[in-house]
Simulated scan of single mutants.
Amino acid sequence: MSTSFEEVRLRLPHIELAAHLFGPEDGQPVIALHGWLDNAMTFARLAPKLQGLRIVALDLAGHGHSDHRPAGGSYAIWDYVHDVLQVAEQFGWQRFSLLGHSMGAIVSVLLAGAMPQRVERLALIDGLIPYTGEADTAPTKLGEALLAQLALADKRKPVYAQIERAVAARMQGVGAVSREAAELLAGRGLMPVPGGYTWRTDARLTLPSPLRLTKAHAAAFVHAVQCPVSLVLAEQGMMQAQSGLTELLAGLPFSVQSLPGGHHLHLDDEAGAQSVADCFNPFFLAP
């Protein structure tokens, strides 16, 4: 697979992020956001198939080649929203669209709901709202998160003697992927260490959330979105079994299409990437 992109580093006021730039400089401005524990290579197949867009595919903080949060920091999902807004500010984009997969789709919805005046369109792949939690479980969940933070110092990331072993592990990871997809993600996500290779991702990304939005919070963000939305659901993805999805989408003017494939259908193979592009190209070209 041959992919043409420009590698850049974005020095934001609070952190430095890495990104891939796709498409013509005068294309429609789009910020692309990957899923949890992935990186910018998740858009390696899809981005070249999208027409007339200037895509900034980020490595989100703690992922890929981007900086980790400072010591004592955390990875609350709304902090990613702030990062994305700062990226738009750096490019001088007052209006821009968002292309998000999984966690990246969730971040996109939060930003579009919170600042609808800034977001032109949302193109979402197998993601919409975060895992939620209700008030009665909050004390227990916070306690679990605090214990996990205390135990983090004694945990070590896995070290793989060969890259092929890391690829095999990623194929079976959260949101299982094809070998080619795992190779793309691992190529950007691994770094050499004594004894082999390990993931660049910040170990704090695996900590449980100390606080979650309630279902009412999540629904409020979805209903606050004012821009056009195209949502692609994977038939063998992670959202099909999500309870309450049909009710949440009922009555909303979202374009929703279900396509064959798994959670990473846009990356697993060229056919899946093309099918997603066939959904999004007319969406971005619409007046």
Results as ranks from 00 to 15, higher is better:
Leu10His: 12
Leu17Phe: 09
His20Trp: 13
His20Gln: 15
Leu21Gly: 01
Gly27Ser: 10
Gln28Ala: 15
Val30Gln: 13
Val30Trp: 07
Leu46Lys: 10
Leu46Glu: 15
Ala47Gly: 11
Leu50Phe: 06
Ala61Phe: 03
Gly64Met: 08
Gly64Phe: 07
Arg69Cys: 10
Ala71Gln: 14
Ser74Arg: 03
Ser74Glu: 15
Ala76Phe: 00
Arg95Tyr: 08
Phe96Arg: 03
Ala105Tyr: 04
Ala105Pro: 08
Ile106Val: 14
Ser108Met: 03
Ser108Thr: 03
Leu111Cys: 05
Ala112Gln: 01
Met115Tyr: 13
Glu120Gly: 01
Arg121Phe: 03
Leu122Glu: 03
Ala123Ile: 02
Leu124Phe: 04
Leu128Val: 10
Ile129Gln: 00
Gly133Leu: 00
Lys141Thr: 05
Ala153Gln: 07
Asp154Gly: 07
Ile163Val: 15
Ala166Thr: 10
Ala169Asp: 15
Gln172Lys: 14
Ala181Phe: 11
Leu185Tyr: 00
Ala186Thr: 09
Arg188Leu: 12
Thr198Ile: 06
Thr201Cys: 14
Pro210Trp: 02
Leu213Gly: 12
His223Cys: 06
Ser230Lys: 02
Leu233Cys: 13
Met238Pro: 01
Leu248Phe: 08
Leu249Cys: 05
Ser258Lys: 12
Gly262Met: 08
His263Asp: 07
Leu265Ile: 02
Gly272Asn: 08
Ala273Tyr: 03
Val276Ser: 08
Asn281Leu: 05
Phe284Asp: 15
Ala286His: 06
Pro287Trp: 04
